[in-house]
């Protein structure tokens, strides 16, 4: 009896030296696929493994990663935000619009964040106060935002007259590394810290892990469900602000693809590390996964619609893996 009571991380040698365990296969197989895919592209595609291209990938996935990091909060609490793509678009037109009208850069950036807060608060209110499932509530607010984005711009792109300081956020480099990559890393680090090292993150996970148990442990479940949706919107508007800076213009429909791709990063992430649970690092690897595929297929000269098919298949595989190992219950 007492030989089992020893505790402490080092007392289980199986973890280090034992035979390959089923849960390890589950945890790391997606990561192995990512590495293999990377190596295949490196061998097959000429310009894939160059420092320039690696930085390209980092730049390409930075906004996606930020959206995904936000969505991770939602998924961890079992809330799905389908309005993130349009929240990206909202900041992507609002911030340039204000800048073109001569509003100072810091104020314009704050206004972008404020818009995210409002969208998040509306989503959260609909879900936790009115009681509409997040999948449906955010589908509706997404549709509203889509309209709002076009109304604000009259359907046209906003360009010209954007200050250099703003464009630098999306196009500049520091020590040869894109500024966007720093934003991405900062967002991942922040999200990771909050999820893994704060009580806030712990409770978000608790609400998603077992809502009834969380409630009976005194967790204010509603508050954390609401917070998870607000975080989704906040990360989305940051991504949208950066996206317009990168494009050098505010385009009302530029954010749309971030919904599907963002969900994909989370789903892929849920197949690894803690299978069935959305984690920030998992999402980050999910974004890398999508970035590597997009970039590799691009360099091979594949059309974007082929990429779309490939991505769809990957999402299906990821979701199939997740729902086989755990019960994926988001509605």
């Amino acid at each position: 009896m007492s030989d089992l009571t020893k505790t402490g991380p080092a007392s289980n040698p199986d973890i280090l030296f034992g035979p390959i365990r089923k849960d390890h296969v589950q945890r790391y197989s997606t990561l192995v696929v990512l590495v293999v895919m990377f190596l295949v592209f490196a061998l097959v595609v000429d310009k894939f493994l160059t420092p320039q291209n690696i930085l390209n990938i980092a730049q390409q996935i930075s906004m996606l990663t930020i959206v995904g990091a936000g969505l991770t909060f939602g998924f961890a609490a079992r809330e799905m935000d389908l309005s993130v793509g349009f929240a990206v678009g909202l900041a992507g037109v609002l911030v340039p619009l204000l800048l073109v009208k001569g509003v100072a850069l810091p104020l314009a950036l704050l206004a972008g964040l404020g818009a995210g807060l409002v969208v998040g608060a509306v989503n959260a209110g609909l879900v936790t106060l009115v009681g509409i499932p997040s999948l449906i509530a955010t589908l509706a607010t997404g549709s509203i935002l889509f309209g709002v984005n076009f109304l604000m711009t009259g359907g046209r792109a906003i360009y010209g007259g954007l200050p250099d300081g703003y464009l630098w956020l999306g196009q500049g480099k520091v020590a040869g590394i894109p500024v966007l990559a720093f934003f991405m890393l900062a967002a991942v680090a922040l999200a990771w810290f909050v999820m893994e090292r704060t009580i806030f993150g712990r409770y978000i996970y608790a609400v998603g892990g077992n809502q009834k148990a969380a409630e009976l442990s005194g967790v204010k479940v509603r508050r954390y469900r609401a917070a998870s949706l607000i975080v989704c919107s906040l990360f989305a508007v940051v991504a949208g602000t950066l996206l317009a800076a990168r494009l050098g213009s505010g385009q009302p429909n530029a954010g749309e693809r971030y919904l599907l791709d963002g969900l994909a990063t989370v789903f892929i992430g849920m197949t690894m590390l803690r299978p069935g649970t959305a984690t920030v690092l998992g999402t980050f690897f999910g974004a890398l996964f999508i970035g590597v595929i997009n970039n590799g297929l691009n360099l091979m000269g594949m059309d974007t619609y082929i990429q779309s098919i490939v991505k769809g298949v990957i999402i299906l595989v990821a979701v199939a893996v997740v729902s086989r190992s755990t019960k994926l219950n988001l509605l």
Partner: peptide, 21 residues
Amino acid sequence: MEYALIGEWTVRENLAMVHPT
């Protein structure tokens, strides 16, 4: 398993559920 604990969490995280502070 329905009302008190989270199966996917570690023992430590489960113990700290009520008083993480």
